[in-house]
């Protein structure tokens, strides 16, 4: 007996995860763009919209629980749902990192940035690219791509190191920049954590396909 309604419901949940990842990726991009453009209005909107990301996470969780309770998923289906529980938690936290950057932008207020933003948008672009390819690997069940994404976390860590060193130098040279530089270190830290979360998602994709949990790239932070 094939189970068409069940498999359709399972696919719907996976589609919801992709939608949530799109929302999160867009929030992250907008948060850094707003910081760069000093666009307080967009940052305020992103803080409000984070509620929608949180809601989506709980909606997906509900659907997964219902499928487990009513359909007794097994094997790849069970692993997919187990992976989704973790993936949506990481996506929701990436949403929080975007919200964190939006809050930093609001906290900086009318002050100008202590330096032009170059590497922070690079970190953001790298993180978003990792997230997008990770979600494609989720759909394609592609563990090679998932493993590759885990390795790319080192590039984001290197950018974070570079930003940190640069901002520390600015603070040493001019202590009046301490507050402004610290805000940017926090923003960079949010982006560094974002890449770690994407690495977690990639690990769950490998688990989903192979049934084995591997820790593939331990962040040095």
């Amino acid at each position: 007996m094939t189970r068409e309604a069940y498999h359709k419901a399972l696919k719907d949940v996976q589609d919801d995860v992709l939608k949530m990842a799109d929302m999160v990726g867009k929030a992250l991009k907008d948060s850094v763009d707003a910081l760069k453009a000093r666009d307080i209005g967009t940052s305020k909107r992103l803080i409000e919209e984070d509620i929608l990301i949180n809601k989506m996470r709980f909606d997906i969780e509900d659907k997964c629980l219902l499928l487990i309770a009513t359909q007794q998923p097994m094997a790849i289906d069970l692993r997919t749902l187990a992976a989704i529980f973790n993936i949506i938690t990481d996506l929701e936290r990436i949403g929080d990192h975007a919200e964190g950057i939006a809050k930093i932008n609001i906290s900086i207020g009318n002050e100008s940035l202590v330096k032009p933003l170059i590497d922070i948008p690079r970190m953001s672009a790298k993180g978003i690219s990792m997230l997008e390819r990770c979600m494609k690997a989720f759909v394609d069940r592609d563990i090679e791509v998932a493993r590759q994404i885990c390795n790319e976390d080192d590039e984001v860590d290197a950018l974070y190191d570079q930003i940190y060193r640069e901002l520390v130098l600015i603070m040493i040279e001019n202590p009046s920049t301490i507050q402004g530089a610290t805000y940017l270190i926090w923003a960079a830290h949010n982006l560094e954590r974002t890449a770690d979360r994407v690495t977690n998602i990639a690990e769950r994709i490998v688990f989903m396909v192979t049934g084995k949990m591997e820790e593939m790239n331990v962040s040095k932070y």
Binding site: M1, M74, A75, D77, L78, R79, G211
Partner: peptide
Amino acid sequence: RKIFTAPSNKMTEDYITGRFG
């Protein structure tokens, strides 16, 4: 435990997940 979480054979997986039968 292995059969129902991560079977080795695709036919087993398709059967227990209701993809054929």
